[in-house]
Design a protein around this nucleic acid. Structure first.
Lengths: 146, 146
DNA sequence: CTACATGCAAAGAGTTTGCATCCGC
DNA sequence: GCGGATGCAAACTCTTTGCATGTAG
């Protein structure tokens, strides 16, 4: 299926897990998303190709892929977690509370903070997708009271 | 009821809202928590004093108090939001994924990042309680594969 | 052939909503 | 007394779980 990332099949097998069609379909669906996908979106993409696949399998597989570090998981506050294919450098998100727009923060910007926390508090930050909420360039200034 | 924070009654009335016994009880319960409380914990504290108060009222009131900025809300990943009385300087949290311990990050540590994001990306961060997940001093080094 | 993975259906947690009643102002 | 606030119960969303069946290795 030519995923852009490295040999996920070998990774699964090396850890003693099986490579099933469902796992491949779900991984494909995450890649198709080009960005963040909710479990429901992933389920729908998979379901379009393979109607027999169950929601529970999607949830179980997303946990599984996240544990194998094949996907990133983030809570962008939309009610569901969102998942994204791993492999590129980590990046983080700014979520506008007014218009809902999501923009990225380069890891470079955040790196210093994580390092400082490691140094000063002895805590290793493992958040792979940080989400910060606030007002984007277009919406700030429009939101007086709230 | 001598809350440590400023005149919440006037604030509510100024915005055209009513000061009800439920709202006072819920505010009290948040203060008693001394830290983060889930809606359920708050409900239980209120319910002990006033069994007639309903869960729905707790949820509605927490939203209400958050909108008035009388309480902070944070998602520490425990399944429920957590609420804390506002008024002190903002602070943020490190949540250990191994032992569950929660420690604080001084706002000072995070401030630089928020400022940088405002400067470089034109985005005003409004996250009042940031939560970062990872491994605390005691747990790092213990967690090889995962 | 055996243990891991899946499908199904049901349960579970946390939260929200419609509507009649209540009560603060 | 008017309109916001509450209680109640039901619904709703997202996710998890038990168990029988299926299948990868």
């Amino acid at each position: 299926m030519a995923h852009q990332h490295r040999d996920y099949e070998a990774l699964m097998r090396r850890h003693g897990f099986r490579v099933t069609p469902q796992r491949q379909l779900i991984l494909d669906a995450i890649c198709e998303g080009e960005g963040h996908s909710t479990p429901e979106q992933i389920y729908e993409r998979v379901h379009a190709k393979a109607p027999a696949v169950n929601r529970a399998t999607v949830y179980r597989t997303l946990d599984f892929l996240h544990e194998l570090r094949l996907v990133f998981a983030a809570d962008l506050g939309g009610g569901s977690m969102v998942y994204e294919i791993a492999g590129d450098k980590p990046h983080h998100h700014l979520v506008c509370q007014s218009c809902g727009k999501v923009e990225e923060i380069p890891h470079q910007t955040v790196k210093g903070l994580f390092a400082r926390i490691g140094r000063e508090q002895g805590f290793t930050v493992k958040t792979d997708h940080l989400a910060l909420f606030g007002l984007c360039r277009d919406c700030r200034g429009e939101d007086p009271g709230s």
